[in-house]
Measured scan of single mutants.
Amino acid sequence: CHSECLGNCSQPDDPTKCVACRNFYLDGRCVETCPPPYYHFQDWRCVNFSFCQDLHHKCKNSRRQGCHQYVIHNNKCIPECPSGYTMNSSNLLCTPCLGPCPKVCHLLEGEKTIDSVTSAQELRGCTVINGSLIINIRGGNNLAAELEANLGLIEEISGYLKIRRSYALVSLSFFRKLRLIRGETLEIGNYSFYALDNQNLRQLWDWSKHNLTITQGKLFFHYNPKLCLSEIHKMEEVSGTKGRQERNDIALKTNGDQASCENELLKFSYIRTSFDKILLRWEPYWPPDFRDLLGFMLFYKEAPYQNVTEFDGQDACGSNSWTVVDIDPPLRSNDPKSQNHPGWLMRGLKPWTQYAIFVKTLVTFSDERRTYGAKSDIIYVQTDATNPSVPLDPISVSNSSSQIILKWKPPSDPNGNITHYLVFWERQAEDSELFELDYCLKGLKLPSRTWSPPFESEDSQKHNQSEYEDSAGECCSCPKTDSQILKELEESSFRKTFEDYLHNVVFVPRKT
């Protein structure tokens, strides 16, 4: 048989008469490798580009789960590009990614509803959504962080984005990388972005840091009482949809009607710091009717980097990364020049730590249904340095008659930039024990000054392991946590139920 035959053949030295091919099969003959313009397919066939392209389009058009959109890589027609490569849609070739590779997620039936953290986790790592997304989240724990972890990498949506009755959302900033909504599939009414009845939605994105392009379709905003109209108009300008909307697409009466839409800028007039305090004062603000001013709200939190936005980490279910302080308005003076500047002394802060701070007014709604208010920009203030805590785990070892090696770990709280350490030492008198000992005694162990690591005695271990207080009263049991108490109650309830079950099964009433 021919060298490319495997198993047997019907005619000697003829690659077209093989029972099976050793390498690849091409047009009725066995070959060692697939010549151009053919590609290896499933490690035994040679196919042309049209064959591989037909497989790709067949799966793409069917949208069946589990099928493969075949691509070409290293002269092979394979189910998908290997790690580190992405497909070129024009020629199906796998090309190296520039940075992290995109991950295209194809949605069944063309859309997916995100109504819980669990459903959001199914899209973790996706960068391109081939379909439409509907966000409908009523509640949950730590929602802002969970949504950002699972949806934060999405850069492109081919269909539309719909935010509907998501009472738990305060902001859409968890879509931190969303840059493009194509609108290839539109919501009824030709809408590519749809926001309806979101009672706590206050911000779409921080438009000073976020760009969003909507290729096709219109915007729809109705019944978002805490979303200011200025935020919607800003989205029109940034996304390129200005002029597409009709009169009733953006409701003037049901958007922002319960919001404090600040239209003035508060400026800080005085800032002073110490290692654990920050004193702030800002310019006074009074609405047209000074009785509408209820006070100020001061927001602050630790910020290692200057990239904080107002609604980071917030949701309507209680999660809030900001510390909020309510401040009463100052006494009002008739003389504008003698107006008191409101302020606040922030206490209990960490030394040498940068804080993000902003302040906003708290006002009631005027009778004319106009909203007044003022808010400052987010500023960054760093507390002063102070003395560091003591170095940890000092170790001293003498390696000769004239040297001592000293080692330690950095302090747990540096409280500033540590530039150097101060080492103090003092000579001590020799131990009298060394002169009084009889060095001729056998088995004498000389006193040693070398360091030995501390260890816990058996008594201390027994005390720590004991669940009861000892007789001397030195140790006591740790208080039980809520989960331990709940577990004990469940076990007790189970024992009672099981005992009742045994009584009912074992003891049967005697027939009379």
Score class of each variant (00 low, 15 high):
V104G: 04
V104A: 08
H106T: 11
L108W: 15
I114P: 01
V117G: 13
T118E: 11
S119Q: 05
A120C: 12
L123R: 01
G131I: 00
S132N: 13
I134K: 01
I137G: 12
A149L: 07
N150M: 07
L151Y: 01
L151G: 01
G152Q: 06
I157V: 14
S158A: 13
R164F: 13
S171W: 02
L172P: 02
L180T: 10
I181Y: 00
I181Q: 00
L186P: 10
E187P: 09
E187R: 10
I188F: 10
Y191F: 05
A195R: 00
L196F: 02
Q199P: 08
Q199K: 15
L201G: 00
L204G: 04
L204A: 13
D206Q: 05
W207F: 13
W207H: 06
K209W: 08
H210V: 09
F221R: 00
P225H: 10
K234L: 04
E237M: 11
T241F: 09
K242W: 12
G243Q: 11
L252W: 12
K253L: 11
G256F: 06
G256L: 06
D257S: 02
A259L: 13
E264A: 03
L265M: 10
L266P: 00
S269C: 12
I271M: 08
L280V: 15
W282A: 01
F296C: 03
Y300H: 11
Y300S: 06
Y300Q: 05
A303L: 04
P304Q: 03
Q306T: 13
N307Q: 01
D312Y: 05
S319D: 15
D326H: 02
N334G: 12
K337Y: 12
P342Y: 05
W344K: 11
L345G: 05
Q354M: 00
V359Y: 02
K360V: 11
T361W: 03
L362H: 14
S366P: 02
R370Y: 08
T371Q: 12
A374D: 01
S376M: 01
I378E: 01
V381H: 03
A385L: 01
P388M: 04
P391D: 04
L392R: 04
D393A: 15
I395Q: 05
L406T: 13
P410E: 14
P411F: 02
